[in-house]
Design a binder for these strands. Structure first.
Lengths: 111, 111
DNA sequence: CAGCCACATGCAAAGCTATGAATATTTCTA
DNA sequence: TAGAAATATTCATAGCTTTGCATGTGGCTG
């Protein structure tokens, strides 16, 4: 696997490694939205949303369409929301409970 | 979406947000391996591999089986390697080329 | 039990990320 | 052109990550 691809992939995951950016991606999964819609529906400051969108944009995960003085953001590819859904699937089904169980076992063991 | 789940998901993505950890996950996708195997096949120091494995473990992505003085690590769930593959798919097919194209357009525009 | 493996952990410096506040830019409208 | 609306950028700081190096630890084997 070429390093360049790995780095790109790591960058994609890095974009998704923050709850608010995941929320933004999820909000965009249902279609394009402008900054104001995002910042009010997600209850995050305008400037913060704009900053996070530029992170997502510079990694190529979202694109913008400007119209008047609105900037409509959307996912560059719907596969991205599939990726997030799969992550959710993983987290919800297994990892959380498995880790909790393991911590219980470990704490029992250490006594 | 409950914040707790989002935070867990962000943590999973965060684990995958580094090329070497992705390489480790990929190496484990083909079955359990001990630390020495990983550190020599990936050309990373023993201590580094051990540290990264503990990151992956504390987020519940891998598990250990200890036998003698070996520690055999494996993915806790095969869905994780599916997730990585999907990420690769996304990166290889679209994002890279799309971003490059966009940068070309942008640099043309600014002249 | 001495010494060697295979691993794990602690530490510290360098670098990166998150985030609010203030400010700038762009575009529309009167 | 002035002003307002929507978005973008800059800056500063606190906090987290990375990563090498040195050291610690548990389990074998002679």
């Amino acid at each position: 696997m070429p390093m360049r691809v790995l780095e790109n992939l790591a960058q994609v995951f890095s974009c998704l490694s923050h709850p608010n950016r995941i929320r933004i991606v999820q909000a965009l999964a249902s279609g394009e939205k402008d900054v104001t819609e995002l910042h009010s529906s997600l209850d995050l400051s305008q400037s913060y949303v704009s900053q996070q969108l530029s992170v997502l944009k510079s990694s190529g995960l979202v694109k913008v369409r400007r119209e008047g003085h609105h900037a409509y953001y959307s996912l560059r590819h719907e596969k991205l929301s599939v990726l997030v859904d799969q992550g959710l699937d993983l987290v919800e089904q297994d990892i959380v409970r498995a880790r909790e169980l393991e911590q219980v076992i470990e704490s029992v063991r250490s006594h």
